[in-house]
Design a binder for these strands. Sequence first.
RNA 1: ACGCCCGUAGCUCAGCAGGAUAGAGCGGCGGUUUCCUAAACCGCAGGUCACAGGUUCGAGUCCUGUCGGGCGUACCA
Length: 610
Amino acid sequence: MNLRKTLEERLGAALAAAGAPGSPAVVKPAARAQFGDYQANGVMGAAKTLKTNPRQLAEKVLAAAQLDDLAEKVEPAGPGFLNITLSRKFLETQLAVAARDDRLAADTPARRTVVVDYSGPNLAKEMHVGHLRSTIIGDALARILEFLGHRVVRQNHVGDWGTQFGMLLAYWNELTADKARKLISDSDLEQPARVQALHEMDLPDLEEFYKQAKKRFDEDAEFREISRKLVVGLQSGKSKFARGAWESFIKKSLAHCEKVYDRLGVRLGSSDVHGESFYNDYLPRVLEALSAKGLLAESQGAQCVFLDEFKGKDGEPLPVIVRKSDGGFLYATTDLAALWFRAERGLADKKVDWQADRVLYVTDSRQELHFRQVFAVARRAGFVPEGVSLEHVGFGMMLGDDGKPFKTRTGGTVKLMDMLSEAETRAFELVTQKSPDLPEPQRREIARAVGIGAVKYADLSQNRATDYVFSWDKMLSLEGNTAPYMQYAYARIRSIFRKGEDVQIRNPSLGPARDKQSEIRIEEPAERVLAVKLLQFPETLEAAAAECLPNLLCQYLYELAGAFMGFYENCPVLKSEGDTRASRLALCELTARTIQKSLDLLGIETLEQM
RNA sequence: ACGCCCGUAGCUCAGCAGGAUAGAGCGGCGGUUUCCUAAACCGCAGGUCACAGGUUCGAGUCCUGUCGGGCGUACCA
């Protein structure tokens, strides 16, 4: 049950009964323990619009409120707050519900189809740190939305169609073709047999290959001509060689991406890939549709859409260019096609069996204007029905310790694979230092989960809107709001279950206890604090999903861990007896499952032992 | 030049629709191991929320302006 929403609804109804219909109750967790568990701030606002005394209105709302089943105390305070203290019985009942539920009593909001567009690497190059935030944040959002019961459609909009592929194919051609004959002729474009050779070629270092190709492109005019021919051959579909080689290249590059996803624990697979090339056939139709709506205008030889709300320099109208003066299409055109596809055409053309109710674009915040334009044009063109929500989930840059964009010591881009290896290496050193007695394979396994988890958590725990400073020392610290700290908190709880010899050791991922062992009784203040935190899991998830802010879940986790530590210090578990012992064990188990589920929704693994 | 975002403790950041005495972590100082993992826990110090006005019973939060920073602004993605 979403406590906050429930209180919000109940008090909203009470406000209406008290003569302030439509006024939100504005319920929040209490700012201070002395104010109870939740506070409603909406009465004062309502009093203002009604021009009445807020204290008197608070009394009226209180009289009209139906909260007997939830609260043991509701009292007006200060200028017109309503302070709510939940009843012990209610807390115990709700804990029992959560303890018996593998979804930890999270509600299932109205099911929507949510497209999450994330990661989107350029297949011409190797994945680097620039792809990390989109990949991690997008995957966490997808998991959270999925858990809430939505139909989540992951979309990996990979870059697989630019002119840069001509360059790569030309370089590939150069490496494999007869050395004496540089120029590719028209007949060369019809050589499926050579594709086979390329198909079998190993491509161990995508980045190096790209660099070499770029070098050749920059220094050799003949090379440029070949790559131009190959692009034309590829895009027109007239060259079997270009097409075959391109397909082979894309396949190899995607295989590399999938290795990265596997290692990161990111749930993106080949069926989620709908790259730029996929929308190629839709591009002319986008132009036609825009034209039919009278939105298209030619300017300086390019096909543009001008909208009043976008102004450029000096108040000049700012175009959204959908077709270049040379006839080429752009990013905006592809995005329009993708949007159309997701909201309507994909289903209409029977290519997919879904239609989006909400589309999230997880890309860096520099693309904000681009998406505002694309969304506006799509609406105007009728590609997207009104009820469909389009959201750009922007995020800031990753900076190094020096506050500058994150680079290697020599100023190069950091490959994702190298970064993940470094994370594991650093984590292994830490584990070895802290737990030298564990066997090496186990230390390796801990280091993997901790290292990868640290990189992900550091990113997710930050508000995505701002740039964030990447620091190995901070993310791998056991102190503060970090992955290792959360993993450690989990491992500590699990050790209680190992230690208690009579206690049934169960794997929490197997689900909740269904026996009467799960009866929870709230006696001590520390137990109460923990109980309230545990019951705030549902509202946290819904807030994180609504705002696309995974850091809310991280913050919750940290508060939950803090509440557990208070309990752990003050309430002996194994040393207590009878019902108290059973109740505290049940609290431990529920806490462990909540931490595990929260971390899982962030894409982070838990460990039984550290 | 215009537009968007940002400016909170020495550092890295929270602060959810304006609400009660602005919160964490790191770093600093001090304490806790006959006690379920001390990779932990607890305490102390540290802030005119960039600055100046305004709206309001009430502003870190909303409005205006100034200063400082980042990003973006017609054929890259």
